[in-house]
Simulated assay, not measured.
Amino acid sequence: MIMRIRVIAAGLVVGTLALTGCMPGTTSAGTDRSVKKTESNGHSETPAKGVPAAEEDDGGKGDVKIDSCAVDDAMSWPAAKLTITNHSAKKSNYLITVEFVDSKGTRLGTGAAAENDLAPKQKAKATAQGVEKVDGKISCKVASVTRYASP
């Protein structure tokens, strides 16, 4: 039963991303879009010469705040409740990966969340849900954020 629920949950995440158009790097015609992604190491692309570091775009990572991080009592699946605030000047789509780690820093799994058509300064609530069974206390960390302008 639990395995069946995991497969369904994973399918829902993949299906939702495919249906909502959250496929970074492509348009519906399959052409490339410029996407800036912040990797899990926290480093983003080097700013152009003459651009002060304070004005550098963080690729959306600063737009995501973790509100809570917990393991569900019934299913033992980890989840992070998120608040996404669009700090860009354009309506944007977001694809977020959160990693779940134990007290020693060992990754126990990941979860994904997506939000589309978020207007500038608009906030949205989302949940990054893991589908692997986890025991004990966990921490949540935003591993990556892909933000790109809505079509």
Rank of each mutant, 00 (worst) to 15 (best):
G50N: 09
T26P: 00
S44R: 06
G42F: 02
D32N: 11
V101M: 07
D117R: 13
T146C: 07
D58T: 07
T38M: 10
A143Q: 06
T20L: 02
A113N: 05
M3K: 14
T85D: 04
A18W: 14
T27F: 05
G11Q: 07
C140P: 06
G50R: 03
L95R: 07
A74T: 15
S144T: 12
Q122F: 06
K123W: 04
P52N: 09
A80L: 06
K137I: 02
D73Y: 11
T110V: 15
D57W: 15
R4T: 12
R107K: 15
L82T: 01
L108R: 02
V51W: 08
V14E: 09
K36T: 08
N93Y: 05
T38L: 10
S40P: 08
T83D: 04
M75S: 15
T85A: 02
Q129K: 14
G25H: 09
K121E: 12
T83M: 04
K133S: 08
K123D: 12
V13A: 01
P24D: 04
G11I: 05
T31M: 07
V7A: 12
D117K: 13
S68K: 12
L82E: 04
T146S: 12
T27Q: 11
V134D: 00
K91Q: 13
A10L: 15
T46Y: 10
R33A: 04
L118F: 07
E132N: 11
V71W: 07
L12T: 10
A113V: 05
N41Q: 10
Y94L: 05
K36F: 13
L82S: 03
